[in-house]
Amino acid sequence: MADYLLQVEDLTVKFGGLTAVNRFNIAVQRGTIHALIGPNGAGKSTTFNCISRFYQPTTGRILLDGVDVTNMPASRMAGLGVARTFQNLELFGELTVFENVMIGAHVHAGKTWGDALSACPASVVDHVERLLERTGLSAYRNACARNLDFGHQKLLELARALAIRPRLLLLDEPAAGLRNREIAALDALLTDLCNREGITILLVEHVMQLVMAISHKVTVLNFGTKIAEGTPEEVRNDSSVIEAYLGQEMINA
């Protein structure tokens, strides 16, 4: 029996009369990279926002390591080891790169009023410094996040999410808008996070170059329903997927 870190069961999300996601199921195996793909408006981001608890599903259950988190407030998820990034960057723009990542480490800085007012434990600061180093942002540590170029801003969001020390990393289009060289680096970094540190990654992505290279499993959504699931190879060759979504792109590729 497979060991699932995240299970989404019968997830349905309705916005008024519109059903964005319909009885959707996904199970993410521990220690794997799982991609969620589909054409625009397929319900990927909606699903993603339900898992990170920013949206409340109409019906369905979300289990994290077997624990029902369907009614958990979004701000509790980081403490449970779930980190996310945002499709349209949500950095703390006026703050420095260092401070952005420090805020990511918020849940590790203690809980009491004394902790709240005292300087951060050195171990947390060291971890933040290592993350900056690892994402190549050390040189910009005192720069204002708003002033970084787009690629670095994307990396900063990732570094900030990693400061949570997540078990489950949710990435909303991490490669969107990146150059090829940057995608290759991201590819290496994500593979490394998964292989070396055992972080489970669920990513929503349009950039097939990345999805096909790093994913262990791919789930395809169309019009709010799952139309295919399997290894990148299987999905690549699935006729309904080619028809519904990958068609042109894969034929050209």
């Binding site: 990170s52 920013f54 979004a74 701000s75 509790r76 998820m77 980081a78 403490g79 980190a83 996310r84 945002f86 949500e90 950095l91 703390f92 723009g93 006026e94 703050l95 805020i103 990511g104 918020h106 849940v107 900030r160 999410a161 949570i164």
Partner: peptide, 10 residues
């Protein structure tokens, strides 16, 4: 700076 990001950071 960002309420949604703050929430995501716990």
């Amino acid at each position: 700076e960002s309420e949604v990001a703050a929430m995501a950071m716990g």
